[in-house]
């Protein structure tokens, strides 16, 4: 997973509320292997009509410059837990997603794929939106070391993120690898727990022939 620390980029504005993961990546694309990239499928039905032609009101017109930051409407990523929604953003090049509310499972998935989720109060969020709408060259700089978002000469606001999430993103930590350090604790827990509550195990006596 690619570490995230400092990112400067124009922002893609996706300001509708409740953009759920079915809109971010329609279910029919979830069967696609990851190796050819999921960026094609990002917001597919909003970008393309039934014949695959770009819609006039596409949220990501072809003329859009590459960008790594998204400003998203309230409750982005609600709905299905599909991690494909995060892959679609990441494969498109997005590294930061900023909103007034980010749905929980999407947030967890983002953090585990090098996509920094930032939740802001409404006022701060709209300050950024207004700046990004003010001119086509507008950029934002996100600094995860200092938990700051800066723009123009000397505008700056800070954001909160818990330390565990920050560490994971800054160092591109792979959880499976990191959990190895706790292997002893897991084994000890398991012995004690299963001895106390043997009924917890599924009934091995139930056979499962087809």
């Amino acid at each position: 997973m690619k570490p995230v620390s400092q990112i400067t980029s124009p922002a893609l504005l996706l300001l509708n509320e409740n953009i759920d993961t079915d809109q971010i990546i329609p279910a029919r694309f979830l069967r696609k292997p990851r190796n050819s990239g999921y960026h094609h499928y990002l917001l597919y039905d909003a970008r393309y009509d039934m014949d695959g032609n770009e819609r006039v009101d596409s949220p990501i017109p072809a003329s859009m410059p590459p960008c790594s930051i998204v400003l998203a409407g309230h409750n982005i990523g609600c709905g299905s837990s599909r991690e494909g929604a995060v892959y679609a953003f990441v494969d498109y090049g997005i590294q930061v997603i900023i909103s007034t509310k980010i749905a929980d499972i999407f947030r967890n998935n983002a953090m585990r794929n090098g996509l920094l989720p930032i939740q802001l109060e409404q006022e701060a969020f709209y300050t950024l939106v207004v700046h990004c709408q003010s001119n086509t060259q507008a950029q934002l700089s996100v600094d995860l070391e200092r938990c700051e978002i800066r723009w123009e000469e000397n505008n700056c606001l800070t954001f909160d993120i818990d330390e565990g999430s920050r560490e994971r993103l800054l160092h591109g930590i792979d959880d499976i690898q990191a959990t190895l350090a706790w292997e002893q604790d897991i084994v000890a827990f398991q012995h004690r727990y299963l001895a106390e509550c043997p009924w917890i195990l599924p009934n091995a006596a139930v056979s499962y022939g087809k």
């Binding site: 499972i105 967890n108 998935n109 585990r112 794929n113 565990g164 959880d175 499976i176 959990t179 897991i186």
Partner: peptide, 21 residues
């Protein structure tokens, strides 16, 4: 509900890192 990376973690370790809601 969890995502695919978390599913892989559960498969590999039978545990999951979560922030307490």
């Amino acid at each position: 509900g969890i995502g695919a990376t978390e599913v892989a973690h559960v498969l590999a370790t039978q545990t999951l890192w979560q922030r307490r809601p």
